[in-house]
Design a protein around this nucleic acid. Structure first.
Lengths: 116, 116
DNA sequence: TCTTCATGTCGTAAACATGCGTCATATTAT
DNA sequence: ATAATATGACGCATGTTTACGACATGAAGA
């Protein structure tokens, strides 16, 4: 096991990292934006609007679905993919808390040994 | 080149994905939180507080530094790593805009063919 | 039934990420 | 100068992600 020591960090750190990973590819960012703009989408349409093959888009959709950020339900011959807005709202709050924590620190004081 | 088609997406999508990638590992989240809590840090101290070797921590520091999220200045025998609060603030706003866009969509209307 | 059309699955190749040991460099004190 | 100590660079083994073509499945109509 020379890999993936994620278990050694806190749950919050892992959760934030997991979601960040989901957003860590422009295709997945684009997919979420697409689903946000149109309220209803099918996987074929999504592939048509991205510079990727249908297979690859499907793979990205699966990753987002694994985190429950989006949901897909079979609708006859097509599938309806939707954003999970409740979860996105939660994630939004997590990121907000993190960034507030990160930006509140400001710079080093003059009594520190550090001069940055 | 069967890989990395990132160039085909918008600048915003790429930028968001890039930052998300930086946060896509619990170690890097932990590093930022650590730097936020203590105002001044040296790389050795950071490794001491994480369940990773000094070499690996250094690698994560380099990644954060490559995005300019943190800065390091040599201070005699040690190095002072600091958060780039201005950039973090900008990134915060980017994420906020994205999440607002993503969560505003709500659910599918009743006149859609989709029932989710 | 059997074609068709759309979605989902499998296998695979290449690029990238993670983690660490080991060596290099550079500064301070003896 | 030289030892001690701290950071930085290199290389390697292993695991993961990305991207795609080719095949499987399953519903709806001719």
């Amino acid at each position: 096991m020379t890999y993936a020591k994620t278990a050694a960090f806190t749950q919050e750190q892992q959760q934030l990292a997991r979601v960040a990973k989901a957003l860590a590819h422009p295709a997945r960012v684009a997919i979420i934006q697409l689903l946000a703009s149109k309220q209803t989408c099918i996987s074929g349409d999504i592939a048509a609007e991205l510079p990727l093959s249908r297979t690859t888009v499907f793979q990205h959709l699966q990753e987002l679905k694994a985190l429950d950020l989006i949901r897909g339900e079979i609708e006859g011959l097509t599938v309806c993919y939707c954003l999970n807005t409740e979860l996105l709202q939660q994630v939004y709050q997590q990121f907000t808390a993190f960034f507030i924590e990160a930006t509140s620190g400001a710079v080093c004081g003059p009594d520190d040994a550090c001069a940055c």
